[in-house]
Design a protein around this nucleic acid. Structure first.
Ligand SMILES: Nc1ncnc2c1ncn2[C@H]1C[C@H](O)[C@@H](COP(=O)(O)OP(=O)(O)OP(=O)(O)O)O1
Ligand SMILES: [Mn+2]
Ligand SMILES: [Mn+2]
Length: 628
DNA sequence: CATTCTGTGAGC
DNA sequence: GCTCACAGA
């Protein structure tokens, strides 16, 4: 909820920008159909019921009083000429990929000058401290000379308002040679941001607005002050006055219940009104984190870091089934879950291709009512399980999760039910290592070759179906350092089979596992991971199996060749571990796996078996250009 | 009968 | 680690 309240150092010297696209979905539609430019336009989802719901409104339409969340019909009433563009649909639901992709385009342009955090589909935070410092030092002797026209359009808080002289005042402020260091850095930040915004416009046709300040909170606040296609600078000297009249509910994090409780319980209206309360009082009334955070924001202090993150952390698909559309049979739920899972599968496959990462967790959310107990919406328990790649697996697992939740929802009485919303989410992404000497890269390259000459990619995915590849790298601490370990374990994952009522935990069938190998190489500068695999690779075969329906006992056997890193082999969870059998270098263990899995595993392991027969154990052999 | 998303900390 | 409420696009 509330970010942990950490104070910033007394004189904050960071240069932080917040950039937010103007009426974003509308601009995306206007790029697609330029005839809409300059016309009152809004984007709606669906349209058969009351003209659909507006989710984005262009600035021309806003002058007529058209608002987000209005119905299409309502918008037509106040703005008869409005162009209502529908969100694309697929599989009976809205599909937002057009806007997601446009958002990614923008992020990739804006990430060029400093650490960038994708804060939503249409906004980012940037930490431009280094770039601004560099700029300032480069022109410290000459002073700032030429200024883009865009920069002149900046608004600078705390300066006297004078419409006629504005251009000159801004230019003077930006170029002022006797300004303090903090202000000069902001001026440099503003120049950089203006250029970035120009780049976005040139490369995408989209306009955006920005705030430039010493922290995220003030930058966010400023970016919304002057829209569209403008930017606003917050010099430190302007903060007190700004917050003194800044409404509490407009502050990020105070737009909900907390903001209301502040207004009601303290009887205040503006962020600056919080100044009268001691830190202890705020911590006492709210809690240590929230209280500290409140005390700080009243003073314009906020030390939250800009996280370097360009990609979303999860992908979700959902649909609501309002009123009479509520789903009342398992079959209709299954139908819609299938549609949602199809889309989710498509999106995580695309994400894998583009971003080389895999999702590890599948979560099902729903809302439902019980019709005996009044019609009132009750939260349906959400559940998650390991995500298995492949549309069929995702569908199977999502429906099982739903089924567990439903039983919990209706028990013990058992009653008629109706589902009013469903969603499935893929999360906990892990990057696939991409260095030349990575085992996973090797696996995936080999696998994609097999795939091209075989069946539906859905049915044979490197991360998918019943197999998962667990990839681990040794934590570098505790070592003697230059040794780097990668281990790959290939194991089966089953659909969720049981749900423990008490702990609410989904039980998987016990995993049957085959540790494929471990791989060590030196991570010295002299033999960098980026170089050809070099190194003292040791490809060890580990074999093991877990008895189905039995918890494995931990049996760690020291690796004779690599004593120094066995401590890193400690399994985090003692219910799963691998026996090491140095003698069994043949992959006979797979004979103990279910036939279906065996076949799949054999396909996968063909290259390794060939390698074994040739008594070649070095992964380097696979990377050498002559081979393969 | 707003809808369809995403991210965070608390509490277990 | 998982689930939830809350806050925001
Ligand atoms: N409540 C919502 N439901 C669905 N989609 C939304 C919702 N709010 C915003 N969006 C989508 C559509 C918006 O174009 C996009 C960016 O949101 P936001 O930045 O708040 O407004 P905006 O970009 O449309 O206008 P502005 O120019 O005021 O920033 O996210
Ligand atoms: Mn926006
Ligand atoms: Mn936004």
């Amino acid at each position: 909820m509330i970010p942990i309240g950490r104070p910033e150092s007394h004189r904050e010297k960071r240069v932080i920008a917040h950039i937010d696209m103007d009426c974003f979905y509308v601009q995306v539609e206007q790029r697609k159909n330029p005839k809409l430019r300059g016309l009152p336009t809004a984007v709606v989802q669906y349209n058969s019921w009351k003209g659909g719901g507006l989710i984005a409104v262009g600035y021309e339409a806003r002058t007529f009083g058209v608002k987000r969340s209005m119905r299409g019909d309502e918008a037509k009433k106040v703005c008869p000429d409005i162009h209502l563009i529908q969100v694309p649909t697929a599989r009976g639901k809205a599909n937002l990929n057009l806007y997601r992709d446009a958002g990614s385009e923008v992020v990739s342009i804006l990430a060029a000058e400093g650490r960038c955090e994708r804060a939503s589909i249409d906004e980012v935070y940037l930490d431009l401290t280094d770039a601004a410092e560099r700029m300032l030092s480069e022109m410290s002797s000459v002073g700032i000379q030429e200024i883009d026209e865009q920069v002149i359009k900046s608004h600078i808080l705390g300066l006297p308002k004078n419409a006629d002289e504005m251009d000159k005042i801004v230019k003077d402020w930006i170029c002022k040679t006797d300004a303090d260091h903090q202000d000069k850095l902001l001026a440099c930040g503003a120049i950089i941001v203006a250029r970035l915004r120009m780049n976005v416009l040139k490369e995408t046709t989209f306009t955006c607005s920005a705030g430039i300040a010493h922290n995220k909170m003030l930058a966010k606040l400023a970016s919304a002050m002057h829209k569209p296609a403008q930017q606003t600078i917050v010099p430190s000297s302007s903060i007190k006055e700004l917050l003194a009249s800044f409404p509490i509910k407009k502050m990020k994090q105070l737009g909900g219940k907390l903001g209301v409780s502040l207004e009601r319980e303290l009887g205040i209206s503006f962020v600056g009104d919080l100044l009268q309360y001691s830190k202890e009082k705020l911590q006492d009334r709210y809690n240590i984190n929230t209280g500290t955070w409140l005390w700080n924001i009243a003073r314009g202090i906020n030390a939250e870091e800009v996280q370097g993150r360009l990609l979303p952390k999860s992908h979700g698909c959902g649909k609501t089934f309002a009123g009479s559309q509520a789903l009342k049979t398992a079959a209709t739920v299954e139908h819609w879950l299938n549609e949602l899972c199809e889309e989710l599968n498509e999106r995580i496959q695309a994400d894998l291709e583009k971003n080389k990462r895999v999702a590890k967790t599948l979560t099902l959310h729903a809302t439902a009512f019980k019709s005996n107990n009044g019609d009132f919406q009750k939260k349906f328990p959400s559940k998650s399980c390991p995500l298995r790649y492949g549309a069929a697996k995702i569908k199977e697992d999502a429906f099982k999760l739903f089924d567990f939740s439903l039983k919990e929802f209706i028990s013990p009485q058992g009653a008629a039910w109706g589902v009013t919303s469903l969603s499935v989410t893929a999360s906990k992404f892990l990057a696939i290592p991409s260095g030349t000497s990575s085992i996973l890269r090797f696996l995936s390259e080999n696998h994609s070759k097999q795939q091209s000459s075989s069946v539906d990619s859905d049915e044979l995915s490197i991360y998918g179906t019943d197999l998962e590849i667990v990839y681990e790298t040794s934590p570098k601490k505790k070592t003697n350092s230059s040794i780097h370990e990668e281990s790959v374990i290939c194991r089966s994952i089953s659909a969720p089979t049981k749900c423990n009522k008490k702990s609410n935990k989904i039980k998987q069938k016990n995993k049957e596992a085959c540790s494929i190998f471990k791989y060590f190489h030196s991570n010295d500068a002299s033999s960098s991971i980026l170089n050809e695999p070099s190194v003292n690779e040791v490809v060890e075969n580990y074999t093991s199996s877990c008895q189905p329906e039995n918890e494995c006992s931990v049996e760690l056997i020291e690796d004779p060749d690599c004593n120094e890193i066995t401590s890193n082999n400690q399994p985090a969870n003692k219910t799963e571990s691998w026996k090491y059998n140095a003698d069994n270098i043949d992959l006979t263990v797979i004979d103990e796996l279910p036939l279906e899995i065996q076949n799949e595993l054999k396909e996968w392991l063909r290259p390794y078996k060939q390698a074994k027969m040739a008594k070649k154990y070095s992964i380097a052999d696979y990377f050498s250009p002559s081979k393969k």
